[in-house]
Each structure stands twice: as structure tokens, then as C-alpha cells.
């Protein structure tokens, strides 16, 4: 049955239809939560909270986006609420350590001698990436996970996080610079042909 029909039936009180919607989307949402919080126990609890909220707020679902996109939004909010509770000072953090243009210029830049699609098949490299993503402050992490891992658009990410599209773009850029910096020591070209920026 198509999604819109399932949503309609779930709204009318058909719990079986809601369960079908959950079954269709739970892997995506679990993956998202796992990447946001980094541990399976929290992801499991947040998954339950997320779908309970979705059920209770079904009448607010406009139907102009996919059901999974709407649930992404709820899941991300629940994950951020949990971060706020645990570490209130880190959630709104606006600054992350990324190198300035001057620092990059002084150090020089060299390309990475790797094919990323092949490299990511290595368990060690996936571990390195996941650790670097978890080192990002929560809001930056949420932006990079929604945009670059889950493939949401800038507008959908802005909607999910209730921030402006400009803020999504700024945070995404800084998060990518942070991740590039974390990965550089492992991937920089062994020939060390660094070139200085102007």
C-alpha cells in the first residue's frame, strides 16, 4: 500500500497501518540515531521515543514530504534534547576548531592518494570516520549526518533542525573542514608534495 494511504489510515486510528509505516522506516531512523548518539542503547531508547512522538503528532504531518523525512526531524529533535540534558553547554556551541586560511597557507596542502569509495570499505577507516563525526559538537554532527550521510537537501535539513538554510550551509562547511582536518594525517600523500596557498 502506498505511503499516503497508510498515513491516512493511521490517522483514522488504524494502528496496523502505523506499524507498517514504522517497519518501512525504522532501519533508516535507527541508523540516523546511531550515527547521532554513537551508542546502541541510547539509539534504541530514542527510536521508541521518536515513534511514540510521531504517533501522537500524526495529525501535524502535512504530507508534503516523505513520512521518513518527517520522522527524521522528530528523531533529530529527540537526540538533540538528550544532548542538551546530558551536556547543556555543548549543544549550542558555535565554534569548532577548524584551521584558518593562514594556518593552511603556512602548512601547505597536499592531495590524498586514495579512492574514497574503496577506502571506506576498510573497517579501520570507517572507525576513524565515525570517531571524527562523533567528535563534532551535536549541532554540527546533526547537520553533517543529515546532509552528507542521509542525503537530505539543505532545505530539508534546515526544516529538521529548525535553523536557517544559511546556518545549515555554514555549519556544514565548518564540519567538513573539521573532518578533513581529522582525516588529513592519515591520508596525506606520502610523497609530501605540499604546496603553499597564497
Amino acid at each position: 500500500m502506498e505511503e499516503a494511504r497508510l498515513v491516512q489510515r493511521a490517522r483514522q486510528g488504524d494502528f496496523g497501518a502505523f506499524e507498517q509505516l514504522v517497519t518501512r522506516t525504522e532501519s533508516k531512523i535507527y541508523g540516523l540515531l546511531l550515527r547521532l548518539v554513537g551508542n546502541p542503547e541510547d539509539a534504541r531508547e530514542l527510536l521508541q521515543e521518536t515513534y511514540l512522538s510521531a504517533y501522537r503528532n500524526l495529525d501535524r504531518f502535512q504530507g508534503n514530504a516523505a513520512f521518513s523525512t518527517w520522522v527524521y526531524r522528530i528523531a533529530t529533535n529527540h537526540a538533540l534534547m538528550r544532548f542538551r540534558k546530558k551536556n547543556p553547554e555543548t549543544v549550542g556551541l558555535d565554534e569548532i576548531p577548524v584551521p584558518t586560511h593562514e594556518e593552511i597557507r603556512e602548512r601547505g596542502v597536499s592531495d590524498w592518494d586514495l579512492d574514497p569509495k574503496e577506502a571506506v570499505l576498510q573497517k579501520e577507516i570507517r572507525g576513524l570516520l565515525n570517531r571524527a563525526i562523533l567528535d563534532l559538537p551535536p549541532l554540527y554532527r546533526a547537520v553533517v549526518v543529515l546532509r552528507d550521510v542521509e542525503g537530505l537537501s539543505t532545505a530539508e535539513t534546515a526544516q529538521a533542525l529548525e535553523i536557517t538554510e544559511g546556518a545549515v550551509k555554514t555549519r556544514l562547511h565548518r564540519a567538513r573542514l573539521f573532518l578533513r582536518e581529522a582525516l588529513s594525517p592519515h591520508f596525506e600523500d606520502a610523497r609530501d608534495d605540499r604546496q603553499g596557498m597564497r
Partner: peptide
């Protein structure tokens, strides 16, 4: 190039 590779690595890490 390295920024593009970062994005691809992140995309496929999930």
C-alpha cells in the same frame, strides 16, 4: 580534491 574526498568518505561511511 581533499574536501570532495572527505564528503565522499562521510557519505559512504554510513
Amino acid at each position: 580534491n581533499t574536501l570532495k574526498k572527505t564528503v565522499v568518505l562521510v557519505r559512504y561511511s554510513g
